[in-house]
Amino acid sequence: MNSVWIIAKRELGSFFDSLVAYIMLIAFLGFSGFFTWLFGSDIFYVKEASLQVFFGVAFWTLFFFIPAITMRQIAEERKTGTIEMLLTKSINYRQLVLGKWLACFLLVVIALAFTLPYYITVASIGDIDHGATISGYLGLLLMSAVYISIGIFASSLSSNQIVSFLLALLIGIFFHFLFGILAGSTSGWLSEVFDTLSLTNHFESISRGVLDSKDLIYFISITLFGIFMSEYMISKKK
């Protein structure tokens, strides 16, 4: 566990050193703030004291931003050869992957923490549903957990960051909406399988405030699957 934290701390430090963190935070807050407060069907247009609008926007912004922070995780270690240095220290594949995952996850947590003023603002101007808001945040965190895990897996496939980024998006698109579309255009058990696989469905039910163990199991199992696959790829391709 200690090694996981050492890796995560270094990685988080390098996000902030390399400006990746600042760019990601500013862009995320800029986008989500703009669409939540100023433009389109924003909070004032919806006329409801709820953060549903923000969750909808963040659902998409995170989808694009997470591959941008995960793409370098393993790919760059491969390219510069530092992976050899890391793996000859007394850590195993799992600790390495978990450390990387934790660093990305913490960056997303920091980004979401900066949106807490949205919550406070809306709560002060209207009667907000606290339960739904908390589970909305939970939904975003779970969704991020899944995409980070997929992103790190994509990063472990290649030593080229752009390839990793595109791969992560490609896999992500399936979970984000292609499975949903496929579920609609098929029928019977096949439709149910696609329906279960679609991340959007699970996210929507959580962000509406319904905490179902089925959804939790879905998010956690895909996250773990991604982590195992990354471990496997790192051990295979050296």
Binding site: S3, R10, S90
Partner: peptide, 29 residues
């Protein structure tokens, strides 16, 4: 691995880290 010190051929290092921080990172690992 804990008992082995290894200097790889191409000496890969984290270029964005100060020397002392890097050594601390390796020591802790």
């Amino acid at each position: 691995k804990e008992n082995i010190g290894y200097l790889p051929e191409h000496n890969p290092l984290y270029h964005d880290m100060p020397v002392v921080n890097y050594l601390a990172f390796c020591a802790k690992l």
